[in-house]
């Protein structure tokens, strides 16, 4: 049994099929890349798995339990952490408190949560900024804060929506290492990313989403040589060139 099993998942927005009959699994400890052109439905897929928006059809089974229709906070506590593409820090709270919130949501003692938060901040190299206001952080630090908050839930699965984009290559490297480390602890990562080199290097498997549909799935090599995938991306490049 896989850690995450998604079957026949669909979601339409007033006629537009943002996610269209998608099936896939994620195994424990696995790093899976989710790629696709802009508007392919990646963020929507995350929102469906995390319970942020209700599904039209389909099921999400996590760790043997059907979590379809659960509230976002229940899913978070059940063991799925997520980051947001458009970051959502608690701006007027300190970095430490941002992370403590997540740590405390499943721990009745605030002191324990604070300790956990500090440990997590240490891991993502934010310990030095723990007392700054989250709203005042630069982008790179905010991305790591998102990750820290998700990690503080002690999740079995992390949904990471473009945590690498907007970072310089130098900022990226340590984060990549951290992600590998996190996966080595047995946590699964589902990674939406535009930085192709990084996804390909990191992921054991790649899912390609296009117009809401799962276009291809396989190892990085299989996927990059898939003619459908090449066409989908070429199509996008042509559009880009034309505009």
């Amino acid at each position: 049994m896989s850690l995450l099993e998604v079957t026949h998942l669909s979601k339409s927005f007033s006629g537009l099929r943002a996610v269209d009959d998608v099936d896939f699994q994620v195994e424990a400890g696995e790093i899976v890349g989710l790629i696709g052109p802009n508007g392919a439905g990646k963020t929507t897929l995350f929102n469906l798995v995390a319970g942020r928006i209700p599904v039209d059809t389909g099921r999400v089974v996590f760790d043997g339990e059907d979590i379809t229709g659960w509230t976002p906070h229940a899913i978070a506590r059940r063991g799925i952490g997520r980051t947001f593409q458009l970051m959502r820090p608690f701006a007027s709270m300190t970095v430490r408190d941002n992370v403590t919130v997540a740590a405390a949501s499943s721990s009745p003692r605030l002191e324990t949560a604070r300790e956990l938060a500090d440990a997590v901040l240490d891991r993502v190299a934010l310990a030095g900024m723990a007392d700054e206001f989250a709203g005042a952080l630069p982008t790179a630090a905010r991305k790591r804060l998102e990750l820290a908050r998700a990690l503080a839930l002690d999740p079995q699965l992390l949904l990471l929506d473009e945590v690498l984009s907007g970072l310089t290559p130098a900022e990226r490297e340590p984060l990549l290492e951290l992600l590998v480390e996190i996966a080595d602890e047995g946590r699964a990562l589902l990674l939406v990313e535009h930085v192709m080199a990084a996804v390909m290097r990191l992921s054991q498997r790649i899912l390609v989403l296009h117009h809401g549909q799962l276009l291809a799935a396989g190892t990085p090599d299989e996927v990059t040589s898939d003619p459908d995938v090449i066409e989908a991306y070429l199509g996008e490049e042509e559009q880009l060139a034309g505009s």
Binding site: R82, F90, A91, S92, S105
Partner: peptide
Amino acid sequence: HGRRGMFIVAVREDEEGAEASGVDA
């Protein structure tokens, strides 16, 4: 100064972020 109050403020700051952090907004 407690856990609940911290959650309340977190929800004020960003409801979606709070829910993704396991807080029932």
